[in-house]
Design a protein around this nucleic acid. Structure first.
Lengths: 242, 242
DNA sequence: AACCGTCGTTACACTTTCTCACAATTCGTA
DNA sequence: TACGAATTGTGAGAAAGTGTAACGACGGTT
């Protein structure tokens, strides 16, 4: 499912998608191989791999959700991405992993040894290109997130985040307006470069403004997608060059 | 020079370097090819390519400096990287460029058509791997910058930025303490997610604290590298989890 | 069922950074 | 060399987001 491995981060943007075109539904050697791989179950809060671990496999998420993050020595954390079913993780690692991958709930993945992947890529140039493209897409996603975190206000970030999850849900054939947040407020905060309080406050304000509805902290209903999109773009102006 | 194409962004971190090991000085087919390519001169403020342009070449900087950035519809800008001599740019682009590349002064690059690159990569797997690695390194760099912008204070960001430039200068055989800033304050601000005023103020404070010395806005002398490194790590604490 | 720990929400004081205004400096050009 | 334009530096007030703390809701355990 490389073609569908768009990341949350990549979707934070303004809808522009450099690489959207030409996503062939053709059989994928990586897909085939992964389908035959043995599934592996990770319990909630456990890690598939950690920062600094030797990179041995790439994984595809089958069931559940993962949080991909990096830690700083003083405890500050940057969530780099959330992995959903169909997403491939561990692609960028050379030698050792630069991030940790933690299951947010009980999660099932299928893994494929890097050595095998390398062999396959050498014989099948199409696969090689696909890997390159997937990595390139991750780079785009990282820069999109960088943009969001660096230039946007708290409201814009949260709104963009919800819209990203919405688009992603649609891509999986789920509802665009009923969004499940499998991650904690802390995860969201560390993803968007905010504090949990600000995330909470912002979500509350979106609710009182009737842009979204919140149930049990986990289920978000987008009541006013247009307003949400508006907020994601330019909040109440902001930015010296607004 | 793929092996030396570490980016400013990638150096912002705490010195950890996932990929430092095994940088073979061996002949590189990409290098060979680029060395034979015709040089192209770009005047100050002109672009090699712009966001949305069809990606046709990868380029290696020979002389001068480039600013790689993305624009948002409302004018906000995110500088993604600064390219120095030896750096390769345009690697991640698939189809069309996701960023613009602007010369900060008169700059010379050598370009290589993507088609040629693709051909070479198909026959030479070593090159294919190198390209993949270079892209992976760019991803790491992007995430490092994300971390910096997302989690660090203004002082930490500026300090980390100066240290990154210093390391980079060393790598090119230049002085570690005498740093030239070929970019404007605006470029730095848009790189670090700050305003020019904050960048200016922060630099001034570093100077009054005798951590650095400033001459002509462009030449920075690091007087106290240890203090600068200290500031880059954890400023005066800050961060709820400090 | 009561307890405990975790997570999320809310309020308020506080800090950092931003915005705006203007002075000083630098650079390019005449 | 002098001028004008652009860039950079500085200060004061405003705004956004943070830190702290208290409280409530939820889920698992005994």
């Amino acid at each position: 499912m490389l073609a569908t491995a768009f990341t949350t981060a990549g979707d934070l943007g303004n809808g522009r998608s450099v690489l959207d075109a030409a996503a062939p539904a053709a059989r994928d050697p990586l897909d085939d191989r992964l389908a035959r791989a043995a599934p592996r179950t990770i319990e909630a809060r456990e890690h598939i791999f950690c920062e600094g671990d030797r990179a041995t496999h790439v994984y595809r998420v089958e069931v559940g959700h993962l949080c991909i993050y990096r830690m700083m020595s003083d405890g500050r954390r940057q969530v780099v991405d959330f992995a959903y079913p169909g997403d491939i993780i561990g692609l960028g690692a050379l030698g050792e992993h630069g991030e940790s991958a933690q299951a947010m709930e009980r999660t099932v993945v299928r893994g494929m040894p890097l050595a095998t992947l390398r062999e396959l890529a050498q014989t099948d140039h199409r696969l090689g290109m696909k890997l390159y493209e997937a990595l390139s897409r991750e780079l785009m996603a990282a820069r999109e997130l960088l943009f969001t975190v660096s230039q946007r206000t708290a409201t814009e970030r949260v709104a963009a985040f919800l819209l990203a999850l919405s688009r992603r849900a649609v891509r999986r054939g789920e509802s665009a307006t009923e969004i499940v947040l499998p991650m904690t407020r802390m995860d969201i905060a560390d993803f968007l470069g905010l504090t949990i309080e600000t995330v909470s406050r912002t979500l509350t304000r979106l609710r009182t403004d009737h842009v979204i509805d919140l149930e049990q902290c986990i289920l978000v209903t987008i009541c006013n997608p247009a307003a949400l999109a508006e907020l994601a773009q330019s909040s109440g102006q902001v930015g010296r060059r607004g």
